[in-house]
Structure formats: structure tokens, C-alpha cells
Amino acid sequence: MIEARGVSHRYGDRVVLRDVDVRITEQRVGVVGANGSGKSTFARLVNGLVLPTAGRVRVDGLDTRTDGRAVRRRVGFCFTDPDAQIVMPTVAEDVAFGLRRRGRSRVESRTRVRDALAAYGLAEHADHPAHLLSGGQKQLLALASVLVTEPAVLVTDEPTTLLDLRNAQLVSRVVAGLPQQVLLVTHHLDLLDAFDRVLVFDEGRLVCDDLPAEAVGFYRKLMR
């Protein structure tokens, strides 16, 4: 369960989130809003990448301020630009990176990496340089690298924004089939049709919290 109580955040003098109160228990939750609306900051608050300047964010009862490490172990984060989150030179090494950081043995890491690469269609690229993958494959690698550590929640910040339609559909299919609770920040509104709930942010405020059809309709009107 993700819970934000009285959450505000400011960068210097600029307030990017104001008094957000929300409790999320659903498995599939979308987050939409214009550029600069505060949706990406909200996503970063859930992982503890950003700490609120006021209020509290809790994930399964763990406070992002005081239990940051435990929260990051529970919440995987996938960024818009896969190039910025692939930290090792080859595909298999990048997937293994998170496991090694968590003290998994070399043998266990190897098995889990092999399974993860197979699950995301990257098995034949295991030893390839990550920078030679296509955009869609890079995003799948980024997802695999996060999900191999088995987080309970996956937060993805516009994972399809830089991808063409085919790759965007591929990544969204993978995200749709995950067992994890997913918080998806996106501008691709059609991805949210099958979601349980959608949050709409505008100028730092949570202005709509509803079922996908209603929330997306509200957002479309807001953007006119």
C-alpha cells in the first residue's frame, strides 16, 4: 500500500507538489498530467528518490524519510530514458548488477539473470553491449534489471515516451503482465484503459482521482 499524507514538495522557491493526500491499494494505477504538473515528482516520492518537504509518504507502512533503504528494496523505479539507468556495459552484467549489490551469490545471480533475460526476450543478447540494443530492448533491459530484484511495487516514469509504437506496445504488454503493483506515469492515455485507477495532477495538485475512463476524460477537458 502506498500512502501520501499532506505531501508537498518544493525545489527552491518553486512548489511542485501541494498537499497531496492519497492512499493506493490497487494493482494498476496510472498517473497523468501536463509537463511540470508534479507527476514525476510524485513518482520519485514513492521510491524515496525525493523526500517531501512537508508531509509523509509510506509504502507498506515504511516511511520514505526514515526507512529509505527498505523502501527502495520494495519499490523498483524505471526511468524514461533507459540509457540513463543502464549502468553496466553488457546486458547480462546490468541485470546482475542489482543482485550483486544485494549480496546474492554468483551462482544464484547467474540463474536469476538467465531467467530474467529469457522472460524479457533478451536471452540472445546476454553478452551484447547494452548501448547496441534498440530503444525497446533497452527499456526492456531497464525493466529486467529492476524486476530481477523482485520489488513489490514498480514505479515507471514515462517508460514509453521515447519509444516508437511497436516498442511502446511491447513494453506496455510487459508492464501489463507483471505481478507487481504498478504505478505508471504516462502521456499515452490508451495504456490506462485496463488500469484500476488514474490520478490526474495539475500545477502540483491532485485534481482528479477516479476510474480510467472518468479520469482520462477529466484530463482531456483540462488540457483543452
Partner: peptide, 13 residues
């Protein structure tokens, strides 16, 4: 961005 990704992947822990 890379620094942020490293933190998200638990490097700073």
C-alpha cells in the same frame, strides 16, 4: 540522471 538511477537501484544504501 545516472546518479539518480544508481540511488534508485540501491547503490547509496
Amino acid at each position: 540522471a545516472l546518479g539518480e538511477a544508481l540511488v534508485a537501484r540501491g547503490v547509496d544504501d
